[in-house]
Simulated scan of single mutants.
Amino acid sequence: MKGEGKAGDLAVIFSFKKNKFIGVGLYDPDSPIRIRVLHQGSPAQINNDFFRARTQDAKKVREALLATDTNGYRLLHGENDGFPGLVVDVYAGVAVIKVYSPVWFPWLSGLIPVIVEAAAAETAVFRCARNVEKAAAALGFIDGQVIHGELADEDVVFREHGLSFVANVVHGHKTGFFLDHRANRRRIGQLAKGHDVLDVFSYAGGFSVHALGGGARRVVSLDISAPALAMARRNVVLNFGEERRHETLAEDAFVALERMQKKGETFGVVIVDPPSFAKREKEVPGALDAYRRINKLAVPLVEPGGILLAASCSARVPAEDFFRVVEAVLTASGRKWTLLEKTAHDDDHPIGFPEGAYLKSGYYRLN
């Protein structure tokens, strides 16, 4: 690229010294990441065929997941699937295309049919991050806009390992649901039978529904957001027709756990899955302290022989630092503990570079 460029222009990275092609990407003039690299090594022609082949490659990675009773999945996981700044989630035939960088706007008209074809989608919805809303509007795109087919209801019911959930694909957070914890939710369902379960930072009740589906005796969904808990109740009723074994608690998690601890409450399974505590590098020390405090409050709530699932979705916090903090809390509690397993993203959230590994979870049995 010579001279001034616009967002989405192809930019070739070339070594004049070695007279060698290095890579090609999309120019992002207003971002700290000036070139969103699409391809490196040998030269390639960037066109709809290129994106179609890459999208089909991504679909193949999801084949095992899609062979299960699951029709809510991530088709394109940004940089990790070779689409930097672009995410596509699919909910029961509705493809939600979320744009995080303006580099994709010049390519959208060609990409939409490619995505629809790969997802076998009847409908496609455009979503965008706040930082690109103005650029989108200038091109006629509005967050939540239906850009292919028709959308009968913005609340789309999809399946996850045989259980049903609602994703609001027009106004919901991110693309409407958090899909990355799917495997962990299923695992909690396998561990929950006969137990009281506490789902801390429950949001829309993903863990709670799987725990109930696995035969939990009682599930408490704790979240500060009343609307999130309303969605959790809706998801429970959608699957079980009633909420007889399900309770919700709209309260600050730190306050609620301390109160439960003073009352002597215990649970056979406790899930601690907070939102990201660190969006920036300078917030990492505070995030680690928050993980320490919340897990210190959670440990006494785990009954002898019970399980703590401690999770983090803070990309800035390295896995080794997160687990070090959690395990220091467990040791300081004076209780004997055993690490059962550590997990990361589900199959539809592949990790293509170290920084892409944001999700980490540890299952601990406490005696």
Rank of each mutant, 00 (worst) to 15 (best):
D321R: 15
R335T: 00
D196M: 10
G362Y: 07
V116F: 07
G3R: 12
Y100N: 09
D321V: 06
P354H: 04
V90H: 04
I271M: 14
D289C: 01
L26I: 05
A120R: 15
V61E: 10
K134D: 14
A124I: 08
R186T: 10
V197E: 10
V219R: 09
G264N: 05
Y203V: 09
I97Q: 03
L10E: 01
N47V: 01
V157T: 13
L151E: 00
S15D: 15
D49A: 09
D180V: 01
R259T: 06
G25L: 06
E242H: 15
H148Q: 14
F165H: 03
F126L: 09
P285I: 06
L212N: 05
E117H: 07
S312F: 05
Y364E: 00
V270M: 06
L359K: 08
E281P: 01
R130D: 11
F126P: 06
R316K: 15
V302W: 03
L340P: 05
T55G: 00
S361Q: 13
R186S: 12
S101A: 15
E160A: 12
V166S: 04
V24C: 00
R233L: 08
R217F: 09
D9N: 13
V270H: 02
L66R: 15
G194I: 09
E281A: 14
A95V: 08
H345Y: 05
E303M: 14
G78T: 04
E355N: 00
G352C: 10
R74G: 02
E251F: 02
P102K: 01
K60G: 00
D273G: 06
F14D: 00
D153W: 08
K336S: 13
F254I: 13
C313Q: 11
R218P: 01
P32W: 02
S31V: 12
E247R: 11
R335G: 03
G194H: 02
W337K: 01
Q145H: 10
L86R: 09
L38F: 07
A95R: 02
V284I: 15
T175F: 12
V302F: 03
G176A: 10
K59N: 00
V88W: 04
A287C: 02
Q40S: 12
Q261P: 04
D289I: 10
L308V: 02
G305E: 09
F353E: 07
M260D: 03
Q190A: 11
V326Y: 06
I33V: 15
L108C: 10
V220H: 03
A64V: 12
A58H: 06
A278E: 11
G215M: 07
G85K: 08
H161V: 03
I147Y: 08
A53S: 14
A332K: 14
C313R: 11
G23F: 04
V61K: 15
A228H: 06
S15Y: 06
A228C: 02
Y363M: 02
A129I: 11
G362K: 07
R234T: 08
V326A: 01
L26A: 00
I294L: 12
P354K: 00
Y100P: 03
G8Q: 04
R52S: 12
F21T: 05
A7W: 06
G110T: 05
A64R: 14
R159K: 15
L10S: 01
I351F: 07
L66Y: 14
T70K: 11
L163E: 05
M231C: 13
Q261G: 03
